[in-house]
Write a protein that binds this DNA or RNA. Sequence first.
RNA 1: CGGGGCGUAGCUCAGCCCGGCUAGAGCGCUUGGUUUGGGACCAAGAAGUCGCAGGUUCGAAUCCUGUCGCCCCGACCA
Length: 561
Amino acid sequence: MRLSKSFIPTLKEVPAEAVIPSHILMIRSGLVRQVSAGIYTWLPLGYKVLRKIMDIIREEMNAIGGQEFHFPGLNPREIWEQTGRVEAFGDILFHVKNRDYVLAPTHEEIVAYHAKGSVVSYKDMPQIWYQIQTKFRNEPRPRSGVIRGRQFIMKDAYTLDKDTEGLDRGYALHDKAYRAIFDRCGIKYFVVGASSGAMGGSKSEEFMVKSAAGEDTVAYCEKCGYAANAEVAQSVAVGAVHHPESKTIYEISTPDVKSIDELCAFLKIDESETAKSRIYFHEGKPVLVLMLGNDEVNETKLANVLGGTVRPAHPDELKEITGADAGSIGPINFPHRTIADNLLKDGNNLYSGANKNDYHIGGIDLKRDAPQIEYFDLRTAESGEKCIRCGSDLEVFKAIELGHIFKLGTKYSEALGVNFLDENGKEKPVVMGSYGIGVDRVFACFVEQNYDERGIVWKEPLNPFDIQLIGLNMKNAAVADTCERIYIDLIAEGYEVLFDDRLDASAGFKFNDADLLGMPVQVIVGEKNLKEGKVELKYRKSGQKKIVELANLTEELQHPV
RNA sequence: CGGGGCGUAGCUCAGCCCGGCUAGAGCGCUUGGUUUGGGACCAAGAAGUCGCAGGUUCGAAUCCUGUCGCCCCGACCA
């Protein structure tokens, strides 16, 4: 393709609305353009790559027996009422104003609609149905370019089975297909077991990519693959020390000491000798939560332990409950339920608040002085702690969700009456699974993982072109003629070539554009080298350059360095 | 929905606090010429109802009110 005739609007300057690298580069290199918040046009070069991603997805979905559909984006609201999801989605669901239609944010309802009355016998199953289609969600805050949009492209698949064993098989097939898809796209990812949230159903796994732009926080062990959402992640951390001699408790005047850091500095002690108190409300009653040192309370774990929901106490409530303000609260003589993190279990000679402003208590032996305490895992795992499975270092970081596979079960088939007759002539609801991939996210994540200060660094197989052919001075007849010949030859060899044939662009301009666009190989034709019958090859990733005989060009291209 | 920021030419921004001649710069664009190995140079030019609406004022990009949009943090997130 000739650059002079292509619509590839590159930008030298960073667009004001973009913040994260992939978003900036996707706009700067003319792949996408924003139309409105969370709404993007895929420009020709970007769409070319997007199609390559979709082709890979198609191949792998077809390989596990998937059949491609194209479901409508516009759905009758009535179907969504039947599963209760108009209410469940709430404001996220787009409603059409002049008809009783909604814009589909996913397609379980439509799949169930088609299955009903058509998939009627156990002999009709299993089925794997999928599509690659635009989805609509009225996100309250679109962000990070195409990573969270109001309109996005999703590959969604659905399995229909007669029993849970069938569902297990379909689920396993998708797990395999997803790994193949992300591997082929050249994306570094990991898999996290997750709760299935509002989708309903039991088991689910998320395919994640590490990224500062991510919306989830996960703990991950590279060594053994242990990965968990930070809300539930466990880790091995050093607990409170049990000294052979337990001191007796004593009160210490600690004027203006409010935090653990200040307490440690004031008493010249280590964090591991302190216990931090937090007051939460659970079912209307206060609960003191005691953590080692500066460990943060994990509210998800706390809620799981107590059952139901919890909320932190307001500052004005603290005084009433404890007799002190935040910073001086402690477990000794605390009149309500007290629970503590496992790391404090054997602690003695600890320091904590005295429930009296500006006073702390030292010499605490929790077993002796607060025997009523119940112990649970309540802390949030942090980087550098050890993996509970293999003991290696655990890393906690932000991640983007690329794909999610769910065992739905019979939620939708029961709601919509999608039943079949089994071997015994007994009527049963179809067992469903649901499997999504954010196609635009695959694109953005690839860019997040493959760029440098000059631009995107494409690699097989997603690269939009194999080669960028650069004619440095196209007004020079020898350069122009040689470029034309190389262009035709390379295409004949089967390469996809982007030919920078612009007449008026200067050399530096073309070099910078080529680096920004990021094709794996640049073939550079300039007067200087051409006089000696040579052209230059530049490999985008390494930056390595090589002057080669024009006659040997195609051969050289077959042996990349 | 809470907090913060921004809206001036295709893009990036200055001007606004402290109202006053004809609203600016760089990049990009058009025309002509010179250039061509790391975002060239010279000359001439086109391009903005200063987001929108109302108000204050002799006078508003600038002050006030409202409204819409965009970005960031948080909440939310199959």
